[in-house]
Simulated assay, not measured.
Amino acid sequence: MARGVLLAFIAFVAYSLSDASVKLLAGSIPAFELVFLGAALGLLAVPMVKGADERWSDLLRCRSRLMWCLRAVAAVAGSVFSVIAFTMLSMAEAMALLFLMPAFVTILSVIFLKEPVGWRRWSAVLVGFLGVLIVLRPGLQPFTMGHLAAILGALAGAVTIVILRALGPTEKRISLYGAGLIGPIVASFLFAAPHLVMPTPRQWIFVLGYGLLAAAGNILLQLASEHAPASQVAPAQYSQMLWAVALDALLFGIGIDLPMILGSIVIIGAGLFTFERERIRKPRWWNRHPLIRAR
């Protein structure tokens, strides 16, 4: 159990550095092109994620083709919106808004999975949105495309989680993982092709950091899930907020103010409460099912 949780924390360090690589590119490479390159590099993680009883053809095989395609579309949206958010906002601000995902998961689970949700989880949803208002400070600072992208990225991640819940008991892990790579590779290339930019040698360093560190995070998270149940591994993702604050200060010279601290605490607290409630209510397969990074 301890080894699994430790591996999860290391995985989210890798993810945080991957996100920092996006910001270091400062929007010099179009978002769709960056997502294409990152997803293509993510294919390197497939051999580690692939189960012994799974075939390479299972990357494209799914019992529900519609749901597989929806998972692919959600992966494209989550990746593109996250790149835009980290490019336009501080890492801490983008991460705080992306942590809205558990609140969106609760809402979508009620609508599409018909899950019963009690007043405690609904209260956590409302508290989470209150935290967003504290972070955004409407009327005191402008609402930018970066803020919208972060919120839409959280929504896309929630769609992915709901699809995983719907397909998890019947689909192979490699199929669900494949949709999260193949969708961004195909769709982002089609959008990026007319405006391709050749990265400079310096930019290639950050492009490789974005893709390879995310792939390393996926591998580490897969290993973590083999040593500990998902319910114990998932809360480690909130350590990304600490890394976001540290990287903002060390790499970009961006500080964090009191409203950001308070809003982040509120959002993270609501998310942790939601995870705990779902840990209690979810069937055993969900607690065993290996995690896949939603975005």
Score class of each variant (00 low, 15 high):
Met1His: 08
Leu6Thr: 10
Leu7Cys: 09
Ala11Cys: 10
Phe12Tyr: 15
Val13Asn: 01
Leu17Ser: 03
Leu17His: 01
Ser18Arg: 02
Asp19Cys: 01
Ser21His: 08
Val22Pro: 01
Val22Thr: 15
Leu24Pro: 05
Leu25Phe: 07
Ala31Ser: 14
Phe36Leu: 15
Phe36Gly: 03
Gly38Arg: 13
Ala39Gln: 08
Leu43Ser: 05
Ala45Arg: 05
Ala45Leu: 13
Pro47Asn: 12
Lys50Met: 09
Asp53Pro: 04
Glu54Ser: 10
Trp56Ile: 11
Trp56Phe: 15
Asp58Pro: 08
Leu59Glu: 09
Arg61Asp: 06
Cys62Asp: 03
Ser64Lys: 12
Leu66His: 11
Leu66Phe: 15
Met67Ser: 05
Trp68Arg: 08
Arg71Met: 06
Ala72Asp: 09
Ala74Gln: 07
Gly78Lys: 08
Val80Gly: 02
Phe81Gly: 03
Phe81Met: 15
Ala85Lys: 05
Thr87Ser: 14
Leu89His: 07
Ser90His: 06
Met91Leu: 14
Ala92Gln: 04
Ala96Gln: 08
Leu98Tyr: 05
Leu98Pro: 07
Phe99Pro: 02
Phe104Thr: 02
Val105Leu: 01
Leu108Tyr: 06
Ser109Phe: 03
Val110Asp: 01
Ile111Trp: 10
Phe112Glu: 02
Pro116Ala: 12
Trp119Asp: 03
Arg120Thr: 11
Trp122Glu: 08
Trp122Cys: 08
Ser123Gln: 09
Ala124Asp: 12
Leu126Phe: 15
Gly128Asp: 06
Gly131Lys: 10
Gly131Arg: 13
Gly131Ser: 12
Val135Gln: 03
Val135Lys: 00
Val135Gly: 00
Leu136Met: 10
Arg137Glu: 12
Pro138Cys: 08
Phe143His: 11
Met145Ile: 04
Gly146His: 04
His147Thr: 07
Ala150His: 11
Leu152Ser: 06
Ala154Ser: 14
Gly168Gln: 13
Thr170Gly: 00
Ile174Ser: 01
Ile174Thr: 10
Leu176Thr: 11
Leu176Gly: 05
Gly178Val: 05
Gly180Ile: 00
Leu181Ser: 09
Pro184Glu: 03
Ile185Asp: 04
Ala187Glu: 01
Ser188Trp: 00
Leu190Gly: 06
Leu190Ile: 14
His195Asn: 14
His195Cys: 09
Leu196Gly: 03
Pro199Leu: 04
Arg202Pro: 00
Arg202Glu: 10
Trp204Cys: 06
Leu208Asp: 02
Leu212Met: 13
Leu213Ala: 02
Ala214Asp: 09
Asn218Trp: 00
Ser225Ile: 01
Glu226Ile: 00
His227Tyr: 13
His227Ser: 14
Gln232Trp: 11
Gln232Gly: 00
Gln232Thr: 10
Gln237Ile: 15
Gln237Lys: 04
Tyr238Ser: 12
Ala244Leu: 02
Ala246Glu: 02
Leu247Ser: 11
Asp248Gly: 06
Ala249Val: 07
Ala249Glu: 02
Leu250Gln: 03
Phe252Gly: 05
Gly253Val: 11
Gly255Met: 06
Gly255Trp: 03
Ile256Phe: 03
Asp257Pro: 04
Pro259Trp: 10
Met260His: 13
Val266Ile: 10
Val266Gln: 01
Ile267Gln: 05
Ile267Phe: 07
Ile268Asp: 05
Leu272Phe: 13
Phe273Ile: 08
Phe273Ala: 15
Ile280Phe: 06
Ile280Gly: 11
Pro283Cys: 08
Arg284Gln: 08
Trp285Cys: 11
Asn287Ala: 14
Asn287His: 14
His289Gly: 00
Pro290Asp: 10
Arg295Thr: 11
Arg295Ala: 14
